[in-house]
Every structure is written in structure tokens, then in C-alpha cells.
Amino acid sequence: MPEPSASGATPPASRSGPGRVLVAVYAIFALAATARAAVQIATRFEEAPLAYLLSALAGLIYIVATVGIARAGRTSHRVAVVACAVELAGVLAVGTASVFEPALFPDDTVWSRFGSGYLFIPLVLPVLGLLWLGHVNRRESRWAGQPPR
């Protein structure tokens, strides 16, 4: 159970323990995917526009998930859940398409082949994010004496 602060408020669970690690990994992926996509779009867009736009989308989703997981509050929690779910759907869809129709992606995206170029972290990260958000939801609901969100 989280310890109340001097003001009596409970610190957000994402700011301690595994939540900090998750936020850090999301932030790294947000920066890496966004920066890579920006360079690719600026310098080689005509080579693989779909792949580069999907990488930019992945970067934006990582940014939204990072902020949502890092912040406390019901709205941030919901935004993070949606971002992680969209991310998981994206990595599954793009991963499947890149395996069965590789011609669609003349260059890799973050999600190509289920994130194999990134040690499959893009596949595992949204699952961990959703599990963590479920844990935080249950923990905060129990502490506040409310039913889970």
C-alpha cells in the first residue's frame, strides 16, 4: 500500500519501483522512434513513406503512453490504457503485415517483424504497460476503498 505524503495524498504508483522503469523505457522509445522517423521523413521520405509515417505514429503513441503512465489521475490512466492498446494493435498489425507482405515495407518501422530490430521490446512493452496499469488501478482502488476503474 502506498504511503501518504505530508499533504496526505498518495504518490502516483508510476513514480516508484517498476513504474519508473516502465516510464523510462517508454521515454527512450518515444525519443528514439520520433527522432528516427523525423530524420527518415526529412531525408528519405520517398523511399518508404508508409514505413516512415508508421514509425512517426509509433513515436507519438510512445509519447502519449509515457505521459499517461507517468501522471496520476483517472484521465491520464485512461489515456495510457488507450495508448498501450493502440500500440499493441499497431505492432501486431504491422508485424503481421511485414512478415507476410514484406514488399509493403521497403524499410523497417519500429513495429516491423514485431519489433525484431529492437529485441522485440515493441511487442512486449504495451503488454507490460497494460499489466502495470491494471495493477496500479487495482492498488489505487483498494487504497481508496473504491471499485476498480
Rank of each mutant, 00 (worst) to 15 (best):
S116P: 03
L92R: 07
E47K: 10
Y52W: 03
G134S: 09
V79Y: 12
H135V: 08
P122N: 12
V94R: 00
T43F: 11
P147R: 14
A27Q: 06
S5T: 15
V67R: 08
A58Y: 00
G145C: 07
P126V: 04
N137R: 15
P148E: 06
A56K: 02
I28P: 07
F114E: 03
F29T: 08
A27I: 04
G129R: 13
A70G: 15
A72F: 05
R15M: 11
T75L: 09
V67P: 02
C84P: 00
F120L: 13
H77Y: 14
A38E: 03
L50C: 01
F105M: 06
V81A: 07
L130S: 11
A65L: 04
T109R: 05
R15F: 03
E46P: 00
Q40K: 14
F105Q: 13
W111R: 01
L50I: 11
G95V: 04
V25F: 14
G115L: 04
A42W: 10
V67E: 03
V124G: 15
F114Y: 14
A56F: 10
L130K: 11
W132P: 00
Q40A: 15
R113H: 09
S14I: 04
C84N: 15
A51W: 00
V99Y: 10
E87C: 12
S5H: 10
L60I: 11
W111C: 03
L123G: 06
A32E: 05
P126G: 11
Y62L: 01
S16H: 13
V91Q: 01
G73L: 07
W111I: 06
S55V: 04
E3M: 12
L54K: 09
G117H: 09
W132Q: 02
